[in-house]
Design a binder for these strands. Structure first.
Length: 365
DNA sequence: AAAATAGTCAACCGCAGTTCA
DNA sequence: TTGAACTGCGGTTGACTATTT
């Protein structure tokens, strides 16, 4: 046998398949704190039984804070068509024109929607597609009012598109009212019925996050997770400590399947990385079980966050309102038992994200 | 109501390019 | 200069969900 290339990881010793919310949380928290200088070493340091490649993919495509979720707009679709016409299957390059979108996402959209929309047959779709496309997309580009950042340009001049995107980034940075990630802009009217709106109010500018890698709001609104159960069981202090303890720089996770390790870890599922969390939370609230467990959980949270002391009569909703209106600063509800993973500007976001089922309307308490 | 089919998308795989000792 | 290590990219797969029969 030849030497060949050393595999990036031992496939028998890494976990594969869908990511659990607990794994997501661990990855997010680790990257918030330590960044991701070395993907290969990251899983071990973060205590994840995953291959570095898998961690990278999960972060880039799903967890990173600057991701934009939701359906593609008509304008975005038109722009993808135009860019694909210019660049072919250069998904990464195309994705670079869409802040918050990933190459994987765009590739999927192309393969599932746009190809069909343009009436492609598979047989036509090999080789240099960009050339084949130019004739076909001319019809669709007629509808292209195009995304704002591409509008007005001559069709499919790749270099020009790159310039436009650079200009657009500058423009976005200048116009973004949340440009300083350290400043939380409090909305005049809080919509406590819509937690995602609320969270989005605090979402920092993606450009800033490139440097800070600190916020982790994205996963809460992402979709498609395989998670199916809302686990609102109270984590033990040991579990909380375990989740956030990255104090050992060379923390060594057993590479053998260690049932205790994973049981401890997976037993606590505070983060579900999709909006199913919210739906489930709603469903949970409407059931007796959910109501009861929510109260217990909320009580625990209030206790953990120190709300039962200075603000003993504060309900969950009032708590949320206090935080969002600045009456209650994040520092004041961080407690010793919960090592701070980010230690930066947005601790409050972390907690909203970790417990999205925090009561956000009157029916919850 | 159940089975079949189609659609979607997260995740994996392998290769290419880059970096670094 | 070379080759190993690492990262990033594009193609593909397969699990899951939605829709149709």
């Amino acid at each position: 046998m030849g030497k060949g290339r050393t595999p990036c990881c031992d496939k028998n010793k890494v976990k594969r398949g869908p990511w659990s919310p607990a794994e997501d949380l661990r990855l997010i928290t680790f990257i918030q704190k330590n960044g991701h200088d070395n993907w290969r070493a990251l899983p071990k340091q973060a205590g994840l039984l995953r291959c570095g490649k898998s961690c990278r993919l999960r972060w880039i495509n799903y967890l990173r804070p600057d991701l934009k979720r939701g359906n593609f707009t008509r304008e975005e679709e038109d722009s993808i068509i135009r860019l694909h016409e210019a660049w072919g299957n250069k998904w990464s390059k195309i994705a670079s024109q869409f802040p918050g979108r990933t190459d994987n996402e765009i590739k999927n959209v192309w393969n599932t929607h746009l190809k069909k929309k343009l009436g492609f047959k598979n047989s036509e779709f090999c080789g240099d597609e960009s050339k084949e496309l130019s004739s076909i997309t001319s019809s669709s580009s007629s509808s292209s009012s195009s995304a704002s950042f591409l509008s007005g340009g001559k069709p499919s001049v790749a270099g020009e598109l790159e310039h436009q995107s650079a200009d657009q980034e500058t423009s976005m940075a200048n116009n973004n009212p949340h440009h300083d990630p350290c400043i939380l802009t409090i909305p005049e009217e809080l919509d406590l019925d819509s937690p995602m709106e609320l969270i989005n109010q605090f979402r920092p500018d993606p450009k800033d996050l490139k440097e800070l890698t600190s916020s982790s709001v994205s996963s809460i609104e992402s979709n498609g997770s395989s998670s199916s159960q809302l686990d609102i069981s109270r984590p033990s202090e040991e579990q909380m400590d375990f989740l956030f303890d990255f104090s050992e720089p060379n923390y060594d996770i057993p590479l053998e399947p260690d049932s205790d390790f994973w049981n401890t870890f997976d037993g606590f599922v505070p983060l579900q990385s999709n909006e199913v969390q919210l739906n489930q939370a709603e469903a949970c609230k409407s059931s007796n079980y959910g109501q009861h467990e929510n109260e217990k959980w909320l009580s625990y949270l209030e206790s953990e966050l120190g709300l039962d002391q200075p603000t003993a009569d504060c309900t969950g909703q009032e708590f949320l309102a206090q935080v969002t209106t600045g009456q209650l600063l994040p520092e004041t509800f961080l407690c010793d038992k919960m090592p701070n993973p980010a230690a930066e500007f947005d601790q409050s976001l972390d907690y909203f994200q970790m417990w999205p089922f925090l009561p956000h309307n009157n029916s919850s308490i």
